[in-house]
Design a protein around this nucleic acid. Structure first.
Lengths: 246, 246
DNA sequence: CGGACAATTATGTCTAGACATAATCGACAT
DNA sequence: ATGTCGATTATGTCTAGACATAATTGTCCG
């Protein structure tokens, strides 16, 4: 039964209202997965508009993964598929500031060295020339929040060699100066090494959250970074609204 | 200069080809952030099509966050904004199977108890009636991969009380029987407790990845789950293609 | 009963217009 | 120099068609 779709009074665009009406039916469960939604010509009649308008609305839901469209058959509420969520990747300075804490940064070391193809993370980066290797520490209210170890592919970002990273973190500099097109993160839990524990001022047995990130630009490796957070200092948060409610 | 947009020979839909042509310009860096892309009437002339077709192509890029559109001013390559990524949330059984390992499941305990409003995770769930509390273990090739502690809101999913979870994991049952609309994940690193270490057959000092997930359906709490992975057994992977290349 | 085939039909895409809307820009006045 | 206001213009939305495409469905035949 589709006769209970009633356009709600609204000043937004009609196609958007149609999208929202349909989405409400799906998310509320009134239309379960597999349910066939009204044909475009039916919606055209219900809303008193052209088919192009209805098509735009339904296509938006299809693009969002809420419905599947099949020629000749119709459009159906999609079943759940992948389990994925949008993860907030920590821009540490922004996160610290958001928490209302004072952000601090300490450069620990910085030097240029050739790529070591024996290390998997450098192979994954795809660099084969000189790397700028940086170690630094991020502080929140003066207390260590994260230890960072970073590699910068100097053949992709030659300007980085001239930058003094003593007050500006490499992440902040990169964000502003080097565009990128792809990134991959790997998140794991690790027991830190004694030297890292001293840096972070934690017990050596304290579990740490380890975020490793590779960044590329059109296939060329830009940077690899490994950030170590004391497990009790940081939560990664991911929120998800599924493409389909099933 | 926009004269170098040349439609590539292709049998796909024209609007899609236009989208891809423009996206290539942006991702390659040929059009840097802030660059004004050709007006719709220019693209209309270049591709020899109606404005609606060009509009669909450009609107798709705007929806993806690659460009910003301003009335009267034009459309511009967007600057980077949020740092977010698509995180693959582990459906443990699927992940184990994907790795080519044998999946195993052990139910450890299961009982009904009232909601304890003294616990933050239960408050966040928003339940206030009876909960089904389940502890179980996920195995890969017979070895413990994850310890799971789950709460099911029985007022939202009364059918769960009659389910025998001795061979079917609550996650698998829920995925098939209970639709949900929102989820939140928190990921952290923890030192597990001795009992958990024995369950997972790891040293008590071994860092563990802790994934906590709350699931709601139209505002009503469905389930809370806490999964503990030995840090060396699991990597969460997140990949990201930014909405804008800058 | 089962397979091949053709009719049907819903979606996919597109056109050539139209009017609405908002923001920029320039002209003008203060 | 600054502020107001109207003309201009690019995008936002929509119409009423059209043809293409693919897949279901029924029909017919072996």
């Amino acid at each position: 039964m589709t006769s209970d779709i009633v356009p709600t009074p609204d000043e937004r665009a009609l196609h958007q209202r149609i999208t929202e009406d349909l989405e409400a039916k799906i998310r509320s469960g009134a239309w379960p997965p597999g349910h066939r939604i009204p044909f475009e010509h039916e919606l055209t009649a219900q809303y008193g508009c052209a088919r192009a308008t209805v098509n735009k609305a339904v296509s938006a839901l299809a693009a969002a993964g809420l419905i599947e469209r099949r020629r000749r058959a119709g459009s159906f509420v999609a079943r759940p598929h992948i389990q994925s969520a949008v993860l907030e990747i920590p821009d540490i300075e922004a996160e610290v500031t958001r928490r209302g804490q004072a952000y601090g940064y300490v450069l620990l070391s910085k030097h240029v060295r050739p790529t070591d193809l024996g290390r998997p993370e450098e192979v994954a980066l795809g660099a084969n020339g000189a790397l700028l290797e940086i170690a630094c520490l991020h502080l929140a209210d003066g207390r260590p929040l994260a230890a960072e170890h970073r590699l910068l592919n100097l053949s992709a970002t030659p300007k980085a060699e001239a930058v003094d990273f003593s007050t500006l973190s490499p992440g902040a500099w990169l964000l502003r100066h080097v565009p990128w097109t792809e990134a991959e993160h790997r998140i794991s839990a690790v027991n830190c090494e004694p030297a890292e524990a001293r840096l972070l001022k934690i017990r050596p047995t304290q579990a740490c959250l380890c975020v490793r990130r590779w960044t590329w630009r059109v296939g060329e490796g830009i940077t690899f970074v490994r950030q170590l957070f004391p497990g009790d200092a940081y939560d990664l948060v991911a929120r998800f609204t599924p493409g389909s409610a099933g």
